[in-house]
Design a protein around this nucleic acid. Structure first.
Length: 433
RNA sequence: GCCCCCAUCGUCUAGCGGCCUAGGACGUAGCCCUCUCAAGGCUAAAACCGGAGUUCGAGUCUCCGUGGGGGCACCA
């Protein structure tokens, strides 16, 4: 199933409705890993079929975040590719054509019901404790006549004609077969009255046309998974490998991250959005390592991974279907580990901007020495100035109790008094700092 | 209300019938190293949701229950 000899074509397809968060980044990471591992392609597609929820700066944010993480796509709106455009709002006609194909082969139909009527029906159903479903009014319409009406400009949508009897089974790579009674399925809308396709159609069409071999997506798609499988089959297409990733839970394990939780975390210095990572002192190597391990593992002892190592070791089989709570203290841990793994020169370059922002202008040689002493004690880059800023000051004020251990004898303390000596020992470097 | 998914230490997890007196990591506590803070090393406390089966044998398979999560839009 996940025979890695075939080059995989994998896509990350977010909707530009917000900034890239931990969950999205994880999906993108797994996409990237499988693509690289198999010598395939990592495709970035924008699912912007909903004009209402569109957020202006989201696309740029996502692209920048992927870049920062070091997992830029091979094909996408920015870099182009053989299947352009990679923006669904520009592919309206493609979806329309497939929807009409479905109507012709009896798997879809025109529907002229008004939103008002649908709302009423739904309310009634909820009232009587029924599952809200389309009542099928237009399902029995003569489609020749309906097509004429639609062509004449009558407001309409196109609905999928879900089977009413039997069961539908889809195959998820992590959970095996997922079966539902067709009687629980709804005739979902494929094409909105605006003429634009909805996710359920657009994503399937694009995945097929773009030659996607593996679909990694959140488990919130599990309920509509059978419908998607049905659409593929109705169109006569070969299905990709479906991988529904577990959801990420709040640190306490109780529920998904809400907007409020996101803000709360941020207040405590913990990032949910990739755009905050750098500012909060995290390095991409650590973020990648941390994220990779939320729902994936390699063996019973190895946890430290670089991106290339992940490319080598990643496997769909080791993905975990159960929800995972976000563990920020582990992020800090990985940040420290990866910081210590850096060459001193590299580390020095990364902390330079922090000192400069604080008004210091260290020369390269001195910075390198400071970097060496700071490297083993830096969990986050944010703390670097607090810890080492004094190295670059002409005069420093030191409270005696800050440098003298209360447990020391007076004689010992006296020996420490000359400042050069303190710096010397702190730095483990020559005293000419 | 209906549908779907999930279930091992507080958290992330290993475990794919005997290797489990359940292993690792984070966090926590203690010790060692040490002129400080770190880093590093060692140690400790800490888990198979419950009940029926299947089997010579179940954390591992089946069913039921319970708990948690997700979904039921002209949003994705």
């Amino acid at each position: 199933m996940t025979n890695n000899t075939q080059p995989a074509r994998v896509r990350f397809a977010p909707s530009p409705t917000g900034y890239l968060h931990i969950g999205g980044a994880r999906t993108a990471l797994y996409d990237y890993l499988l693509a690289r591992q198999t010598g395939g392609s990592f495709i970035f597609r924008l699912e912007d079929t909903d004009q209402k929820r569109f957020q202006e700066d989201a696309e740029e944010d996502i692209e920048n975040a992927l870049k920062w993480l070091g997992i830029s796509p091979d094909e996408g709106p920015e870099q182009g590719g053989p299947h352009a455009p990679y923006r669904q709002s520009l592919r309206k006609d493609i979806y329309r054509a497939e929807a009409e194909k479905l109507i012709r082969n009896g798997h879809a139909y025109y529907c002229f019901c008004t939103p008002e009527r649908l709302e009423k029906v739904r309310a009634e159903q909820q009232q009587s404790n029924q599952t809200p479903h389309y009542d099928g009014t237009c399902r029995k319409l003569d489609q020749e006549e309906a097509a004429r009406q639609a062509a004449a400009g009558e407001p309409h949508v196109i609905r999928f004609k879900a089977p009413r009897e039997g069961q539908t089974t889809g195959l998820d790579a992590l959970r095996g077969e997922i079966t539902v009674e067709n009687s629980t399925l709804d005739d979902i809308i494929l094409v909105k009255s605006s003429g634009l396709a909805v996710y359920h159609l657009a994503a399937m069409v694009d995945d097929h046309l773009m030659g996607i071999t593996h679909v990694f997506r959140g488990s919130e798609w599990l309920p509509t998974f059978p419908i998607h499988v049905l659409i593929y089959r109705a169109l006569g297409w070969e299905e990709p490998v479906w991988v529904h990733l577990s959801v990420l839970l709040k640190p306490d394990g109780k529920g998904k991250m809400s907007k409020r939780d996101t803000e709360l975390a941020r207040e405590q210095g913990y990032p949910i959005f990739m755009k905050d990572m750098e500012e909060l002192g995290y390095i991409p190597e650590a973020v990648i390592n941390w994220i990779a391990l939320m729902g994936w593992s390699y063996d019973d002892k190895t946890e430290f991974f670089t991106l290339p190592e992940l490319v080598d070791k990643f496997s769909v089989e080791k993905l975990n279907p159960s929800p995972a709570a976000i563990n920020f203290s582990k992020l800090d841990h990985f940040n420290g580990l990866h910081i210590r793994e850096l060459d001193v020169e590299d580390f020095a370059q990364r902390i330079r901007p922090w000192f400069e922002k604080a008004g210091y202008h260290p020369d390269a040689e001195k910075l390198l020495k400071v970097a060496a002493t700071l490297q083993t004690r830096t969990p986050k880059l944010t703390e670097v100035v607090d810890m080492g800023g004094f190295f670059f000051q002409d005069e420093i004020e030191l409270a005696v109790d800050r440098i003298v251990n209360p447990k020391m004898s007076a004689a010992q303390a006296a020996k420490l008094m000359p400042l050069e000596c303190v710096l010397d020992r702190t730095a483990g470097q020559p005293a000419d700092l």
